[in-house]
Design a binder for these strands. Structure first.
Lengths: 242, 242
DNA sequence: CTGTATCCGTGTTGATACTG
DNA sequence: CAGTATCAACACGGATACAG
């Protein structure tokens, strides 16, 4: 017989790992990547492989054991794979599988929606991957229409190259080829210019941002990513509890 | 600061509610709706307000206290609002706010991605909202091109109406106006026909599905929602652990 | 009848220290 | 530097008792 029903304290034969029992594909997605930190780990891998320590550094507050656990689970699910770099380095890196890479629209949907949150605080730390993903997400095709440009970013140590064309933006790691403009600084500083409306000159004056090349292009670039209006804070704040 | 030595068990000065400290909007989204069950509660509200007991019934495994907690948090965030129905019923219902309703692309992105999961089991229970959302998500515009039809669904007790036109599908609660076809049955049965490839005749024979109206339309309808190919199970299964 | 609050068992999360 | 082990705290889930 099935044990179900009576047994309540003696028999835990189904250690069902706290998953939803739901055929809905979205629910299944949460079974796969709904654990704390899982999606943020994936986010950090969207622009290329990363080492364990890079992931730790980009994810403020994650602890080593949790990161290990998430990476194992993501590997078991076929979302992440571990690779060993060639002998000179021979270090391990984690990379998204092809399917894992296809999770990008999830981040765009989440980001586009949460950008309207009244509680969103854009002044918190920001990783390079988050910043670059935000560009892909928030670019306004209308404002970028007719603009064709190559813009380099130096985020900490890592170079990236964005190509604007046809109202769209493509971003890849590395600095392949020449760029009309190169912006250097911490992701949070770039974000302050693009989303916070802080004048480029102010950031440059502080020495936190460096602009090389076409300054006019820089001024236009930071206007291409408009934020949506905030949603109303809370229609009816709950009485007086939590 | 250095926590060294001193017992901090007495002081909970940082009730940081286990949130990410990250300016990334996607991370903020997870702060808002990343708790267990939160997104599934929202999913159940996507097609209209629901009562507490409806939510409980549609969410297999959620307990009452957790549902209460999630509903409060979602209200506090401005995603859900509680309404009181007019006197005859005067019961409370929960509904998405306008901003909450805009979360729909999140479910589509999650669902579209997870549909490729090797582990996805489509034979689990399925709520009406999940089923209807899957239609919106998986409709193939090319296959639906040139098809103009009104199709009613009777899922349990609740009527819904889908309008196909221009390669798109619109679905709303209720049964406004006439339909060429009405399909009645449990969401899981409809899903078996559309995604499981089970012949309509077989389901009708079992008495689990009822087809009224244009049978040829029904046969075509179930072919409009192709599933994507599965992703490879796991490139390199981890050594020998779980 | 609808929804909320409390107790408690259990598993997961997260911080620290430790090993390869 | 990568990853594991140990342990404390908390979140979840179940049952039940309580409030509107």
């Amino acid at each position: 017989m099935t044990d179900s029903g009576a047994g309540r304290s003696a028999v835990p034969p189904l250690p069902r790992q706290r998953r939803y029992e739901d055929a809905c594909a979205a629910a299944h997605a949460l079974d796969l990547v709904g654990d704390r930190w899982a999606l943020l780990v994936m986010r950090e891998l969207l622009f290329g492989p990363r080492r364990f320590r890079d992931l730790r550094a980009s994810l403020p507050g994650i602890s080593a054991n949790i990161l290990t656990q998430r990476l194992e689970e993501l590997q078991a699910a076929g979302i992440v794979q571990r690779r060993t770099l060639p002998p000179p380095a021979s270090s391990q890196v984690y990379a998204l599988t092809e399917w894992g890479q296809e999770s990008e629209p999830i981040f765009q949907a989440l980001g586009r929606w949460a950008a309207r949150s009244p509680r969103h605080d854009p002044r918190l730390p920001l990783s390079a991957a988050s910043f670059l993903m935000s560009l892909r997400t928030m670019l306004d095709p209308a404002r970028a229409a007719g603009l064709r440009a190559r813009i380099g970013f130096l985020l900490g140590e890592e170079p990236y190259l964005a190509r604007l064309a046809g109202g769209r933006i493509a971003i890849a790691a590395g600095s392949a080829g020449p760029a009309e403009l190169v912006l250097s600084g911490a992701p949070a500083v770039l974000a302050a210019a693009i989303y916070g409306g802080v004048p480029l000159a102010a950031l440059e004056g502080e020495g936190t941002l460096r602009i090389e090349g076409d300054r006019a292009l820089a001024e236009r670039f930071v206007t291409l990513f408009p934020l949506p209006p905030k949603a109303p804070p809370a229609a009816i704040p709950p009485p007086a509890s939590a």
